[in-house]
């Protein structure tokens, strides 16, 4: 094939791969490209570092939220309550 395998990637792409990597959604090749990019790009190294820190902090915090179904139930009930309350006022 005439197309050469591109090793160097621009910063925007590197950041995107780095974001994907936080969710385990980047491919092996992408990760290699990212690491090569990180070798010579200080700004992206910094971003990559804070990014993984953010991931570990979120994991460590065991943050949760309501699941969607429950939230919709809650919403429905609450909207009913708002209506009832408005009638009383």
């Amino acid at each position: 094939m005439g197309k050469k395998l591109k090793i160097g990637i621009p910063c925007s792409e590197a950041n995107c791969v780095c974001d994907k990597a936080q969710y385990d959604e980047s491919s092996f090749l992408e990760k290699i490209k990212l690491n090569i990019h990180l070798l010579y790009c200080k700004a992206c190294r910094k971003y990559s570092k804070t990014n993984s820190k953010l991931s570990s902090v979120i994991k460590h915090s065991k943050i949760t939220c309501m699941n969607k179904k429950d939230k919709e139930c809650l919403k429905k009930d609450f909207e009913k309550a708002i209506k009832e309350n408005n009638l009383e006022l």
Binding site: C65, M66, K71, K75
Partner: peptide, 12 residues
């Protein structure tokens, strides 16, 4: 807007 804005925060 309460539910959208605060439900998750309060739940957590």
């Amino acid at each position: 807007k309460w539910i959208d804005l605060y439900a998750d925060y309060l739940f957590n």
